[in-house]
Amino acid sequence: MRIILLRHGQSLGNVDELAYCRIPDHALPLTETGEDQARAAGPTIKNLIGDGQVAAYVSPYQRTRRTFELLGVDAERIVTEPRVREQDWGNLQDPVQQEMLKHQRHAFGHFFFRLPNGESGADVDDRVAAFLDGLTVRMHKDENHPKTVLVVSHGLTIRLLCRRFFDWSIDLFESLSNPDTCENRVLDHDGTGWRLDRPFDQWRDSPDGTVQHPV
């Protein structure tokens, strides 16, 4: 069994933080660079899928749906999955307040800090856990469900998916960097457990001394 995690291509919000003040987060489009990234990622993702069928679970945000479309992957089933969406920062954002919240969040901790009118990392972790529980049951017990899955999602959400898979500590999670836009991670099940193809970049050692799952 294989699960391919892919972050969306570069979006308008990645290059213009003020875009969040005038466009809802879920409606932010890919940039021209992001569209090129998604097209370029297509052959890589197809190679990772191989010759078998694939089920695609795609965040409902415009940038993830467009990324999946540009990959050109012929999926056996395509599911729009809200539980793998981006962390909710509220509605249209005030730039002064958002800058203050980012400083507070960094000092408090990304996992537990709750954004006003939005979510904490812990909230995202909860919905990711519910998604994974259902997915692993389907992959193990539903004979008609493809054994290869593609999840097109967001940076923090992808880190939390892996945190849940490998039972990483919160300290370790907060020490990891998001994958780059249109960067992937691959999880393979070898019959005894899941393995990650390569670690995430770390911007610091985990304060509790834990490390990423061995590859």
Rank of each mutant, 00 (worst) to 15 (best):
M100N: 05
G90Y: 11
R83L: 11
D88F: 03
F113R: 04
F112P: 14
E119I: 10
N91L: 15
G121Q: 10
H103T: 03
E119T: 14
H110A: 12
F113Y: 13
E81Q: 09
Q98K: 09
Q104I: 04
E86Y: 00
I78K: 09
R77K: 05
P116E: 04
L92Y: 12
D123G: 09
K102W: 01
S120N: 10
H106T: 08
E76P: 01
F108M: 08
I78L: 13
G118T: 04
E86H: 00
F111T: 04
P116Y: 09
V84Q: 03
N117C: 07
F111K: 06
E81L: 08
L92Q: 13
H110F: 04
R83H: 04
Q93E: 10
N91K: 12
V84C: 04
S120A: 11
W89E: 06
A75P: 02
N91W: 14
E119S: 15
Q93H: 08
Q98Y: 03
E81A: 15
E76M: 01
Q87C: 02
D125W: 07
A75H: 12
P116C: 08
N117A: 15
V79N: 14
M100G: 02
E99G: 00
H106E: 12
K102F: 00
L92S: 05
E99K: 04
E86Q: 01
A122F: 09
V79Q: 10
D125K: 12
M100I: 14
V124R: 03
G90V: 11
G109C: 02
G109D: 10
E119Y: 11
V84Y: 02
Q93W: 04
N91R: 06
G109F: 05
E119L: 13
F108C: 10
L92I: 07
V73I: 01
V124F: 13
V84P: 00
H106Y: 03
Q104E: 02
R105C: 05
F112M: 15
Q97G: 00
G121V: 12
E99Y: 02
G109A: 14
M100T: 10
V73H: 02
K102I: 01
D94P: 07
D74I: 09
R114T: 05
A75S: 15
A75V: 05
H110Y: 12
M100S: 03
F108L: 07
V79A: 14
G109S: 07
A107Q: 10
D123K: 13
